[in-house]
Simulated assay, not measured.
Amino acid sequence: MNPNLVSTDWLAERLGDPEIVPVDGSWYLPDAGRDGAAEFRERHIPGATFFDINAVADVSSDLPHMLPSPEVFSEAVGALGIGSGSTVVAYDGAGLFAAARVWWTFRVMGAAKVYVLDGGFPKWLAEGRPVEAGASRRQPQRFEARFDQTAVKSADEVAEAIAAKSAQVLDARSAARFRGEAPEPRPGLASGHIPGSLNLPVQEVIGADGRLRGEDELRASFRAAGVDLGQPVVTTCGSGVTAAILALALEGVGARAAGLYDGSWSEWGAGGRPVATGPAKIS
């Protein structure tokens, strides 16, 4: 099993442990018609707190849910009842979607013990596990972020990596969006992809049950996408959310992402950067 996943059994056995913090990071694309915060208030894992990726973010940026400063992050998650020594278990209402972004964010900010709940809230509910309603009742804690700048890539760094062939850039968007055959869900963005990048739609690493696929299936998916797992991989997507799922999947095959392009296509496709269309050129 991926070392970053914990089972519903594991979490259920530890409910009530003050050091274990279930973190609901549910976030959905606008066309999903779902509200993560409202769903949390309706029901959530007992003892959980809600992490809003749009609020715990760089709100001064025009780009969606960009990483906040370490100082802003520390203050925000401390207020949520998460301390530096807490064991964070991220989950979401889709099974595996925004929880991976929460996992990645805590990792970037130096959290030593952070995991993703395998199967997420859908699996928890299907097994008849306990839930509670209302706002979180966790008491504030002290969190001191230790920011890992190397894990976050800028547009210039992505362009340089492709030009120098120092890293593979792997895009999690759908094949139709990558090829430029489908419009972007956000207005004002070009259709297509970063020239020289590869495409592994996130749906290829998640099973029908909403769980991350096993190691053999993941390896096959990376291989089919033209990824050399022995070389550095930088992940990207539409706005930095599903790119984190690819980062999680890489660790499921014993690799590790060399970085995540936080601005992703929301930045690159907004203009001023070259755009390619059609399928990826796999060498």
Rank of each mutant, 00 (worst) to 15 (best):
P3T: 13
P3M: 02
V6L: 13
T8Y: 11
D9V: 09
D9T: 13
W10I: 10
L11P: 04
E13I: 05
R14S: 06
G16H: 11
G16Q: 09
I20R: 05
V23K: 00
G25C: 15
G25T: 13
S26M: 09
D31G: 01
R34E: 08
D35S: 12
A37R: 15
E39L: 07
R41N: 12
R41C: 03
A48L: 07
A48Q: 09
F50W: 05
D52A: 10
I53K: 01
I53F: 07
N54K: 13
A57H: 02
S60E: 15
D62Q: 11
L63N: 03
P64F: 11
M66S: 14
M66K: 09
L67I: 11
S69L: 01
F73R: 00
S74E: 03
S74M: 00
V77G: 11
L80Y: 12
L80G: 10
I82T: 07
S84W: 01
S86M: 01
A94W: 09
F97D: 11
A98W: 06
W103E: 03
W104Y: 13
R107P: 06
V108D: 06
Y115E: 08
L117H: 02
L117C: 10
D118T: 07
D118N: 15
G119L: 03
F121Y: 14
W124R: 03
W124P: 04
E127N: 09
A133N: 02
A133C: 06
R138C: 06
R142A: 15
D148A: 15
Q149M: 12
Q149T: 14
V152W: 05
K153A: 10
S154G: 05
A155L: 10
A155D: 10
A155R: 06
V158Y: 01
V158A: 03
A163R: 14
K165D: 15
A172M: 00
R173G: 08
A175E: 15
A175F: 11
F178K: 14
G180F: 08
G180N: 08
E181M: 05
E184W: 11
P185W: 04
P185R: 04
P185A: 04
R186I: 00
S191N: 14
H193E: 02
G196L: 04
G196P: 01
N199F: 01
P201C: 01
G207N: 08
G210L: 02
R211H: 11
L212Q: 04
E215P: 05
E215F: 05
D216G: 06
S221W: 00
F222T: 11
A224M: 02
A225V: 08
G226R: 12
Q231L: 06
V233N: 09
V233A: 04
T235W: 12
T236P: 06
C237N: 02
G240A: 13
V241G: 12
T242Y: 09
A244S: 14
I245Q: 05
L246A: 12
L248G: 03
A249V: 07
E251S: 12
V253C: 05
V253F: 11
V253W: 13
A255V: 05
R256F: 10
R256C: 10
G259W: 05
L260S: 00
D262H: 10
A270W: 12
V275P: 05
V275Y: 04
V275E: 04
T277K: 13
G278D: 07
P279G: 07
A280T: 08
K281A: 15
K281E: 15
S283G: 15
S283Q: 15
